[in-house]
Amino acid sequence: RLAETARLHVEGLSVALGPAVLRQDVWEVYDILDRAQTAFDGQRLRLTIVADERGRVLAATDPRRAPVGAEVAGFGAAAVAPHQVRMTGDPILNVSAQLAVQGRTVGHIVTELDVTDLLAERRQAAIWLLVGNALATALLTFAGWLAVTRILRPVGTLVRAMDDSRGTPRPVGEAEIPRSDPGLSRLIDTYNRMTTAVEERAEAERRLSERERFVSLGRLSSSLAHEINNPLGGLLNAADTIRTYSDRPEVVRQSAELMQRGLQHLRDVTRAILDQNRLDRAGQPLRPEDFEDLRLLFEAEAHRRAQMLDWRIEAAEKVLAQQPAAPLLHSTKLFTI
């Protein structure tokens, strides 16, 4: 827009001023400049200088700034051709062109254009452009955030399901699976199948453990019945023999020895079972309840012997807690309470 304005102004003046400059008619040049400034946008055209071919001023729209006979080089130093006019941020632009008549250069034209209003318009346009870009960027950022949030929502659901499992995988509900996204839906379906497989494996391990426990219990019961049944048969036979031959001391003695061996065998079996299956209490503290168990055992023997049992626990519970409930293995240290 600015380059077109400068070109039209300079070309129009060149056509009108060429003959007058060739004749060195200063008053006609002034008249043409005055009519051109009246017809042109006077607010933009600040100064127009017409010089002869020697570079001396013939006429100007402001004679005080450019008197007749002055060198025009001082005004056209920063001037450019009309087709090279560009907005540089300077409110005053200088335009220079040659005056030619029939191919002969007869002078020069230097014009100062005031582009303050154009700079203001460009500045306002830049501000609106920045504001528009900022709003568009904010809107696009918000839309992108919404889109990313919607895309990552199933992933967040999957992460929460894995975090809340606490060691046991929890499947994702059917309502939370994004069927519109084939990739994520396949991922969550795979995870659900994995959780189902883990649950089935845990259930199978639990059933196998119970089965093994029942098998072990059955084997133990069978072995225990066998170990008890054999001496028990001998004890029953010995009891029948004593009852039948009670008048024969030798037979009674032999039967009593047989019964003693059978009872010792039963005692050994019982001890072996207790040693194998009892809880290890060596690392547990001694409690008053342990003494109450002893009291129940002693009361039966004291009642059988027609004796009185005076049972008191004088040690404090804190003192008892410092002692083990059972002696340590491979230790001969005795504790006295």
Rank of each mutant, 00 (worst) to 15 (best):
I49P: 07
E53P: 07
G55Y: 03
V110G: 07
Q43N: 11
V101C: 08
I92G: 02
P67W: 05
G55N: 02
V29C: 13
V57H: 05
G18H: 04
L47A: 01
A66H: 00
A6I: 01
H108L: 15
G55M: 02
A59C: 11
Q98P: 08
Q37C: 13
L8E: 10
D25I: 02
E53Q: 11
S96G: 09
G74H: 03
D62N: 13
V72K: 00
A39C: 09
A77D: 12
G76F: 04
A36G: 10
Q24P: 00
I109R: 08
R86W: 05
D62Y: 10
L58W: 12
T61R: 13
S14G: 12
H108F: 15
G107N: 04
V10P: 02
V72M: 00
V72H: 01
G103I: 03
Y30C: 12
R46E: 14
A36K: 11
A81S: 14
V57T: 13
L8A: 12
G76L: 06
I92V: 09
S14K: 15
R46C: 04
P19E: 01
V101I: 14
E28G: 04
Q37R: 15
G18C: 03
P19C: 02
A73S: 13
A70I: 00
L8W: 10
V26C: 01
V26P: 00
H83M: 10
A70Y: 03
Q98H: 11
M87Q: 05
V15D: 11
A39K: 09
V21P: 00
G69L: 03
V95K: 00
A73C: 02
D31L: 14
V106S: 07
R35L: 14
T5D: 07
I109Q: 08
G103W: 06
V101D: 12
A79R: 02
E71H: 07
L99A: 02
N94S: 12
V57Y: 04
D90R: 03
G69A: 03
L47F: 02
Q102T: 03
G74A: 10
V101E: 14
A39N: 12
R64D: 08
A66D: 01
T61C: 08
L8D: 11
L93P: 06
R46I: 08
R104G: 05
V106Y: 05
Q43M: 08
L47Y: 00
V10Q: 11
A97G: 09
V80E: 03
G18M: 02
R23D: 14
E71N: 13
G103F: 05
E53R: 15
A97I: 03
T61L: 08
I49A: 01
G69Q: 04
D31G: 12
E53G: 10
